[in-house]
Design a protein around this nucleic acid. Structure first.
Lengths: 205, 205
DNA sequence: GTCTATAATTCGATAGAC
DNA sequence: GTCTATCGAATTATAGAC
């Protein structure tokens, strides 16, 4: 059975299930998600979910992989581009992530939650250990901050300034009384602000 | 039955269950936690848990309340103290939170996850909407940043710089190849760094 | 208060008709 | 491919002995 998606294209049943699964899993995490919820969100029957994906775990693994992919896509073209200055890399990184996160605001909480739940799965899989430390970006950062500050501080700060607002989105909208539109507008402003702040952090004594 | 806690004091069975519940719930969240795990961690039988707390949900609500309390305790003496300058408030806030989070690193992920899962429960309960916006801290911040930057940006940044490292702890330790001891040491360094950075953000044009 | 045993429920997965 | 009906495992909660 086929039915139109929001963008007017056609979604097969398999795609409909995957879309629903991505939404529900990312919102609630693995344990709190019931396959029945996914089936309902997809507008199909529970049996059909197992017909296409065999098990809840297999469907989840698929979604997880796609979500991790989103995170990697957003930076892989930046980290090792030797033609970009450090400031340019930071600016591109921040802009890319904010755009991605505006479309997928639940992603960071979902991924960090799953890493905490199953650290062993990510310990070697990502193997980002070396990829990141050996990146052109990190080398530039080391050179620029040498003798003043541990470059890891800068990386943590850049990530926190960019990602944290999305993790704490609802909480922040609550305590500061701003709505979704204002929130997105603020995130656009941060595309300019964060690179400036990061630059200051690197140069400060 | 009574048995010694780590600090040498005596813990009643009820307290032992609460301690175990706090540990397991905070680590794994509501859905992924089995009451059996809590019972085992407490060294008691499953039936006893229900004898003391009636249901998993009631026990969870209790733990949740205590955890939220931890978050509020850490700031309530700072936000409205009219004898502190803005810089002093920031410094005390950052130091208090980092100390609290070093002891309870799972707390932010746990709380933000639950807020996302049940926004309605926190919408009015926290009611932090007004408490925060009307605080002496926020007024000082507005005055200090007037005309240059939206003070909400500063608040989000301060929170992100402080809290995000703990949320992403395992991930960061992975990609940067640092261990737990180095991580805690970095967080101590941030007690000095973050207030300096925040001050720069406020004053920058 | 604490335990063992079990009832009651929820949920993932499958059988089988169409 | 899709559905209804149901099984079986896991898990919360309770009954009842001590």
């Amino acid at each position: 059975m086929r039915r139109s998606k929001t963008n007017g294209t056609i979604a097969s049943t398999e795609e409909k299930i995957k879309l629903a699964a991505r939404k529900v899993f990312t919102e609630k995490g693995f344990a709190a998600t019931r396959t029945r919820d996914i089936a309902e969100a997809a507008g199909i029957n529970l049996a059909l979910l197992n017909y296409y994906f065999r098990s809840k775990q297999k469907l989840f693994d698929l979604i997880m992989m796609e979500n991790v992919q989103l995170f990697i896509e957003a930076i892989k073209n930046v980290l090792d581009n030797e033609r970009l200055t450090l400031n340019e890399k930071v600016a591109l990184f921040v802009e890319g992530y904010i755009e991605m996160l505006k479309k997928n605001p639940d992603l960071p909480l979902f991924i960090l939650q799953e890493i905490r739940r199953h650290p062993e799965k990510f310990a070697n899989q990502l193997a980002a250990k070396e990829i990141f430390l050996k990146s052109h970006f990190f080398k530039q950062l080391q050179a620029a901050s040498k003798g003043r500050i541990n470059p890891v501080h800068i990386v943590v700060s850049m990530l926190g300034l960019t990602i944290f607002p999305f993790i704490a989105g609802l909480f922040l909208q609550n305590i500061t009384n701003i709505n979704q539109v204002q929130f997105d507008k603020m995130m656009d402003e941060r595309k300019k602000l964060i690179p400036k702040w990061v630059d200051t952090m690197i140069k400060a004594g």
